[in-house]
Simulated scan of single mutants.
Amino acid sequence: MKTIVKLIKSAGVAVVAGVFMMACSNALQVSYDYDSSVNLKQFKTFKVEAEHNMEQDPLLGSELNRRRLGDAVVEVMEAKGYKMDTKNPEIVVRFMTDVKDRQQVRSNNMYSPYMWWYGGGNNISTYNYQESRFILNIYQKTTERMVWQGWASGKVKAPTKKEDQNTMIKNTMADILRSFPEATADTYSRK
C-alpha cells in the first residue's frame, strides 16, 4: 500500500513539473512540406547559407543571429549523420527569419436570460502581437529545386542570456529538422 502511495505521489509530482515546463516553454508550432517525388534519403552532404533575395527581419535576421542559425543548422545536420561539404554538396540548406504583426480578436459573449436586467451583450477585445517565423528551405544542388521546407512560427520570448539564445535557436532548428530523415548508414562509403 505504501509503495502505491509513493508511486502516485511521484507521478503527481512528475505531471505538475511537466505542466510547469510546458507553460514556461516557447509555444512554437512546427510544420514541414516536401517533394514526394524525391527520395530524401539519397543525400549525404550539405552546405548551409542564408536564403537569397529575402528581406530579413532587422533583429532576428541580424548578422549575429544569422551566424547562430547557420551554426545551429550545421550542428543538427551533422548530428543526423550528414557531412558538411562547402564545395560540392548534394543539398543546400537555406534559412531565413521574419516577424509578422498579428491580431487576435476575442469575443466574450455575455448573453443570458437576464441580459435585460444586467445589460449583457457581446464584449469584443483585440490583442496585438508579433509572430516570429524560422524557415529552412532545402534545395537539391544539381537541379536548384526545393525538395523540403520546414518552419516554426509563434511568439518568441527573447532569452535573457547569450547561452539561452544559442540554446533556443539550436532547439528550434532541431525541432524543425526533426522530420527530415537521418543520413543512411552508408553516408561516408560513397566518398
Rank of each mutant, 00 (worst) to 15 (best):
R106F: 13
G119D: 10
R68G: 06
T86L: 00
V5F: 13
G70E: 05
F95H: 13
F20I: 14
K83W: 09
L64M: 10
V92R: 02
M146Q: 14
W117M: 09
N122L: 15
N108M: 09
A72M: 03
E90V: 06
F180K: 03
F43P: 01
G81R: 05
R178C: 01
S132E: 08
R68T: 08
V76A: 05
K44A: 13
Y32Q: 10
T86H: 03
I4M: 11
E51W: 04
Q149L: 15
R94G: 06
S112T: 12
T97I: 06
I169F: 02
L28Y: 00
D186L: 01
V76W: 03
T160Q: 09
K9M: 08
K170P: 00
R68W: 05
W117V: 13
I176S: 02
A23M: 09
I169T: 03
M96Y: 12
S36Q: 01
V73R: 00
P159H: 10
W148P: 05
Q130C: 10
S112R: 07
L7P: 08
N109Y: 12
N128G: 09
L69N: 00
S112M: 10
V105F: 11
Q56H: 12
K157R: 03
W148F: 12
P159L: 10
G81I: 05
T160H: 09
R102V: 09
T143W: 10
N137M: 11
M84C: 06
S179A: 01
P159Y: 07
F180A: 02
A23F: 08
A17T: 04
A72E: 02
L69R: 03
V105H: 09
S10D: 11
